[in-house]
Computed example of a mutant assay.
Amino acid sequence: MENEIHQGSCLCQQVSYQVEGKFENFFLCHCGHCKKDTGSAHGANLFSATAKLTWLQGQDKVKTFTLKDTRHVRSFCQDCGSGLPNLQFDDALLVVPAGSLDTQIAMEPNGHIFCRSKAQWQEGLDKVEEFESFPQ
């Protein structure tokens, strides 16, 4: 089977990366930490124990924050704040924010996790009106 190659970057385009290999899991995390990280209803992260991360440019702009007394780790661009990949658990697990990818992935999320922390306003979002761009 052919190895997958994915490209990603931050919003300001100063940091870019490549992931070579397969993602084993894709979870939408509703924990309080991920909601704070994203400012949204959940984090969307891809996980791989085998894929290889290569920084193509701007690695010096990548900052990593570990929340004290937790396993919560977040890497981001120091200039624009975009979430970026990081290695966790003694570099045994690659975590990639799905929204930071520039290439498409065929994988769908495996599931929602930490649902007891779901935002109350998230219920019924599939019924909210959709717009192609900012509404007039």
Rank of each mutant, 00 (worst) to 15 (best):
1 M>S: 12
3 N>H: 05
3 N>K: 03
3 N>A: 05
3 N>M: 07
3 N>E: 09
4 E>T: 14
5 I>H: 02
6 H>C: 07
8 G>R: 14
8 G>H: 11
8 G>L: 10
9 S>A: 09
10 C>E: 11
10 C>T: 13
11 L>T: 10
12 C>E: 01
14 Q>M: 10
15 V>D: 07
16 S>P: 08
16 S>N: 05
16 S>Y: 06
18 Q>C: 11
19 V>H: 05
22 K>M: 04
22 K>H: 12
22 K>E: 09
23 F>S: 08
26 F>Q: 00
27 F>R: 06
28 L>M: 05
28 L>W: 02
29 C>Y: 06
29 C>V: 12
29 C>N: 08
30 H>I: 01
30 H>R: 04
30 H>D: 07
31 C>Q: 04
31 C>M: 04
32 G>W: 01
33 H>W: 05
35 K>N: 03
35 K>Q: 15
36 K>I: 14
37 D>E: 14
37 D>R: 01
39 G>F: 02
39 G>D: 09
39 G>S: 07
41 A>I: 07
42 H>M: 15
42 H>C: 14
44 A>L: 03
44 A>M: 03
45 N>K: 00
46 L>M: 07
46 L>Q: 12
46 L>P: 08
47 F>I: 13
48 S>R: 03
48 S>Y: 03
50 T>E: 13
51 A>Y: 02
51 A>P: 12
51 A>I: 08
54 T>H: 12
54 T>D: 14
55 W>M: 04
58 G>N: 07
58 G>A: 01
58 G>W: 06
59 Q>P: 07
61 K>P: 02
61 K>N: 14
63 K>D: 13
63 K>V: 11
63 K>R: 15
63 K>M: 10
65 F>W: 07
66 T>D: 02
66 T>G: 05
67 L>G: 05
68 K>N: 13
69 D>M: 09
71 R>S: 11
72 H>M: 10
72 H>K: 15
73 V>Y: 00
73 V>W: 00
75 S>G: 10
76 F>I: 14
76 F>A: 11
77 C>L: 04
78 Q>F: 00
78 Q>S: 15
79 D>Q: 14
79 D>T: 15
79 D>G: 06
81 G>S: 08
81 G>C: 04
83 G>Y: 00
88 Q>H: 02
89 F>A: 09
91 D>E: 14
94 L>A: 02
94 L>M: 01
94 L>E: 00
94 L>R: 00
95 V>E: 09
95 V>D: 12
97 P>L: 06
97 P>Y: 00
99 G>C: 08
99 G>Y: 03
99 G>W: 00
101 L>A: 05
102 D>R: 12
102 D>E: 04
103 T>D: 15
106 A>W: 01
108 E>M: 02
108 E>I: 07
108 E>T: 07
108 E>G: 02
109 P>C: 06
109 P>D: 11
110 N>Y: 02
113 I>P: 03
115 C>N: 06
115 C>Q: 10
115 C>S: 07
117 S>E: 03
118 K>D: 00
119 A>E: 15
120 Q>C: 05
121 W>L: 03
122 Q>V: 11
122 Q>M: 13
123 E>W: 00
123 E>H: 07
125 L>C: 03
128 V>C: 00
129 E>R: 12
129 E>V: 12
129 E>D: 09
134 F>W: 03
135 P>I: 02
136 Q>T: 14
